[in-house]
Simulated assay, not measured.
Amino acid sequence: MGGTGSKRHGGRKAAPTGGVDVQKHKQQRDRILVNKPNGGKVTKRMGSGLTSTRNPHHKSTKGVRFMRSTRLMPKYGHQLSPGSAYLSYYDVLLTYEDIKALRNDWLTDNNISFWEEYLEREILPKYPQARIILLRPTMTFLMMRSQSVKDIASALPSFKGVTHIFLPINDNRDVQQAEGGSHWSLLLISTLDGVAFHYDSMRGSNYNEGKIASNRMSKILGIPLRYQQLDDCPQQSNGSDCGVFVCVMMRHLLVKRLLGHNAKEKVSMSMADKMIDAQGARKEMLRIIESFRKEGERRRSISPAASSSHTPPRIE
């Protein structure tokens, strides 16, 4: 491990032949939610509907970096292992190990998947004319490592009419190591401009990985993409905040740049003016999760068919 990113776990299964098992991923691929357009035409910044990807639950505890003997004490008293469920939020199942990682460690696939799910559920519905995809880490990895572009295109969501695609990039190249990788970065593709913007908080460590993803997406979309490394991207000051930077930059670019401007307005995609407080961002994400967990507990307590306390609080 290079010490600059997240362990990957619970999101990818190694194919027995040394390649990516596309058929298996097809069966588990993200579900797509589309808000029908209100008669709007595709514009420079936003399209005519909302498209969002959905991931299956990440329940695997393979690759946990905590000691196997670790036990966490929930407030209702009994001991739980790090892989025990903490919160079910629509299509993402967060575990206690995910919460521990979010506090002060490398962000997991689940942490980033939750953040994308949160943005899709709480932010994007306010902009019904936006047509933007937040691709999950699992599907990004599948897209980058599959040997057949044709097969992977059938496993991915439809990109027809989509104006922008966010892809969390990880540097794991070993399809046999589901929890591999050491660094996160962010790729933002504008199909309108034909540009793939790459944001890397560790001085271009993922330059090659971003370019691989850009080239793959160019073939899948059937359009040329100019790969642009943003050298003025905010830089992390330690070896564990790369995933946090990805989440903060994703929201900033989505809300402040793409959704916060007139559709015909040309918008700068530079992040030079953005200061990132990684610890503050971690605390904010934890507060959001805790608020959903409390709401899930409240709903469970008043449900006539309430299950046992061993079932995680659920928001759906």
Rank of each mutant, 00 (worst) to 15 (best):
residue 290 E to Y: 00
residue 198 H to C: 04
residue 211 K to I: 00
residue 185 S to N: 14
residue 141 F to A: 13
residue 156 L to I: 00
residue 97 E to D: 15
residue 142 L to G: 00
residue 22 V to W: 02
residue 35 N to G: 05
residue 96 Y to K: 12
residue 171 D to Y: 04
residue 187 L to H: 11
residue 221 L to M: 03
residue 164 H to V: 01
residue 294 K to W: 01
residue 131 R to Q: 11
residue 52 S to A: 12
residue 180 G to Q: 06
residue 299 R to L: 14
residue 7 K to N: 15
residue 95 T to W: 04
residue 226 R to G: 03
residue 237 S to G: 06
residue 150 K to I: 09
residue 5 G to H: 08
residue 253 L to A: 15
residue 22 V to Y: 03
residue 93 L to A: 05
residue 205 S to P: 00
residue 78 H to W: 14
residue 262 N to D: 15
residue 74 P to Q: 07
residue 284 E to F: 06
residue 184 W to H: 12
residue 46 M to W: 06
residue 165 I to Y: 06
residue 62 K to V: 02
residue 247 C to L: 07
residue 88 S to D: 11
residue 53 T to Y: 01
residue 227 Y to Q: 13
residue 310 H to N: 08
residue 267 V to P: 03
residue 9 H to C: 09
residue 38 N to H: 05
residue 173 R to W: 02
residue 244 V to W: 05
residue 269 M to E: 12
residue 108 T to V: 02
residue 19 G to N: 14
residue 189 I to F: 10
residue 219 K to H: 14
residue 6 S to G: 15
residue 74 P to M: 13
residue 116 E to L: 02
residue 28 Q to P: 00
residue 140 T to M: 02
residue 305 A to T: 11
residue 315 I to A: 14
residue 163 T to W: 04
residue 103 R to T: 09
residue 279 Q to A: 09
residue 247 C to I: 04
residue 223 I to Y: 08
residue 284 E to K: 15
residue 56 P to M: 04
residue 105 D to E: 11
residue 116 E to F: 06
residue 301 S to R: 14
residue 309 S to D: 13
residue 237 S to R: 13
residue 294 K to I: 02
residue 240 S to R: 14
residue 60 S to N: 02
residue 4 T to I: 12
residue 137 P to N: 05
residue 24 K to E: 01
residue 59 K to Y: 02
residue 203 R to A: 13
residue 212 I to S: 08
residue 257 R to P: 02
residue 45 R to M: 10
residue 309 S to L: 10
residue 94 L to T: 09
residue 217 M to D: 03
residue 150 K to H: 08
residue 61 T to L: 04
residue 304 P to Q: 10
residue 12 R to G: 02
residue 203 R to V: 03
residue 246 V to P: 06
residue 72 L to Q: 03
residue 59 K to F: 03
residue 112 I to E: 14
residue 120 E to C: 08
residue 155 A to P: 00
residue 84 S to K: 14
residue 229 Q to P: 03
residue 138 T to C: 02
residue 157 P to T: 00
residue 132 I to P: 01
residue 45 R to Q: 15
residue 257 R to T: 03
residue 266 K to C: 09
residue 16 P to R: 09
